[in-house]
Design a protein around this nucleic acid. Structure first.
Ligand SMILES: [Zn+2]
Ligand SMILES: [Zn+2]
Ligand SMILES: [Zn+2]
Ligand SMILES: [Zn+2]
Ligand SMILES: [Zn+2]
Ligand SMILES: [Zn+2]
Ligand SMILES: [Zn+2]
Ligand SMILES: [Zn+2]
Ligand SMILES: [Zn+2]
Ligand SMILES: [Zn+2]
Ligand SMILES: [Zn+2]
Ligand SMILES: [Zn+2]
Ligand SMILES: [Zn+2]
Ligand SMILES: [Zn+2]
Ligand SMILES: [Zn+2]
Ligand SMILES: [Zn+2]
Lengths: 253, 253
DNA sequence: CTTTCTCTGTTTTGTC
DNA sequence: GGACAAAACAGAGAAA
DNA sequence: CTTTCTCTGTTTTGTC
DNA sequence: GGACAAAACAGAGAAA
């Protein structure tokens, strides 16, 4: 690596991000707890390690591209500082108490000007949400749709049923669903489990519907194939059963 | 609801699915454990409830659309069966031992014919993977791309840089990335954390790069704004700092 | 609201 | 037959 | 590999 | 200047 100055990045574009993740329960009345999964998945919840000294890093002074040099201790980090744990490279950094001595608490907002930034971008940053329609040029003229965007490109994407959220960019079959899809990027989980003491919440009605069966124990799906009498609690499992066995694609009744 | 026979569903189409989720550690040497998140998020890992009787369900005999009637105990499930726990509707079904008495283990594969199904669909069911190229008609003729699909529609979607995985359907800016994106749907996590004892694995090199800083404690991002001296471990946090404060969008160096 | 950290679509950098 | 909305399905996928 | 269960894009059902 | 691949960024977003 060599020193070279950055030339004032511009970036910004209005698409893609991440998508979804799983949920959990842990309600008042038990249920089984689903852990978040490592990759290799190792059991045992918490096992606090000892590690005493904060293990201060070698922070080289030269800053390039706003990145201080280091990171060359990469592959085999040859135990440098005063380590006292077991192996030479087998511990995590001890958590610093909370910004040691509140360094730089002067957050001087600096007038908040975040650049011009393509003027009035539709602001669908749902999560830490605003959804300010700002000036709202480029309005969608599709039947029941009232959405509007800051650039013609964004409107074009929208009209092609493409989600404008940064890491998303999904394309849908219907414009109507495109609007419903937005809840994926919102924090609200307006649907609640009606079971007393259960705190589960949902974005989708169907998820709630199937979740309730966990409480009731219902297994509403019954394979109609003559010999087979299997029952299932979730459609998905019933679907898989039919797909893999070929059972009862046609209903008997 | 009333009885009416299903008319042999066809469904099948080749797009969309879910997306991603988070990772975890829990390696040999501690780290903090990240739990999977309920929605309302309630602490306390496991709290096993007592509940003795299996609480057998009212399973009505009439099967319609392969669904047995029930589910009307929905909203307020008026405590029916012999409950003996505290409240009238506050417990989960006790786990049945493991398919009681191995009922219906005759899985007779039934010749496996899963219908004609649009003949040779490219089979990108990555997860429980096959990626059989089957007959491989409709080949992509874009420069370095060797992918092929079972239908012209699928090839057309592919040429428009749209991911064919069922719940995905993301549209990308480059055809090259479309191919790289596939790893999102694959189970392999080929990149490993080089830290001794750490079992973290990754699909993306950058995730590994930043993860390693958790071990080293490095904070390579240093704000170049004159007064501010803040450092950051992850680009994302540095980016946010610059975005929110307006600091050092231009580099000093 | 906060901080810590991972995931990933796009942008930037580095080499030929 | 046509809307149109609500419900359900059919996968994908996470976790154990 | 398995089972249990949630998420969500598309399909099906139900009502007007 | 052009590839092209590797690295990095800039969000989104999960969890605590
Ligand atoms: Zn330098
Ligand atoms: Zn948040
Ligand atoms: Zn619209
Ligand atoms: Zn989206
Ligand atoms: Zn519940
Ligand atoms: Zn069956
Ligand atoms: Zn009936
Ligand atoms: Zn799996
Ligand atoms: Zn191609
Ligand atoms: Zn995809
Ligand atoms: Zn590691
Ligand atoms: Zn700063
Ligand atoms: Zn009709
Ligand atoms: Zn699966
Ligand atoms: Zn040049
Ligand atoms: Zn965020």
């Amino acid at each position: 690596m060599e020193d070279d100055c950055q030339k004032n990045r511009k970036t910004v574009r209005s698409k893609q991000s991440k998508s979804q993740t799983l949920q959990q329960m842990k309600q008042a009345n038990s249920v089984r707890v689903r852990r978040p999964a490592s990759q290799p998945v190792k059991k045992r919840a918490q096992t606090q390690m000892k590690s005493k000294t904060p293990l201060k890093m070698k922070q080289l002074p030269c800053v390039q591209n706003n990145r201080s040099e280091e990171e060359e201790e990469e592959e085999e980090g040859d135990g440098e500082e005063e380590v006292e744990v077991t192996g030479p490279s087998t511990r995590l950094r001890k958590r610093v108490p909370k910004f040691e001595e509140s360094e730089g608490k002067s957050k001087e907002k600096e007038t908040k000007r975040k650049g011009v930034k393509s003027a009035t971008t539709a602001k669908i940053s749902a999560r830490h949400a605003k959804i300010k329609e700002e000036v709202a040029e480029y309005q969608c003229d599709i039947e029941g749709c009232t959405m509007s965007f800051g650039s013609k490109l964004e409107l074009m994407q929208h009209k092609k049923n493409i989600c404008p959220v940064k890491g998303c960019g999904k394309k849908f079959f219907s414009h109507k669903y495109l609007v419903q899809h937005r809840r994926v990027h919102e924090d609200d989980r307006p649907l609640k489990c009606p079971w007393k003491g259960c705190k589960m919440t949902f974005k989708w009605a169907w998820a709630r519907t199937e979740h309730i069966r966990v409480h009731t124990g219902a297994r509403p799906y019954v394979c109609a194939e003559p010999g087979c009498g299997q029952t299932f609690r979730f459609v998905s499992d019933f679907s898989r059963h039919k797909r893999k066995t070929g059972h009862s694609t046609k209903k008997s009744c």
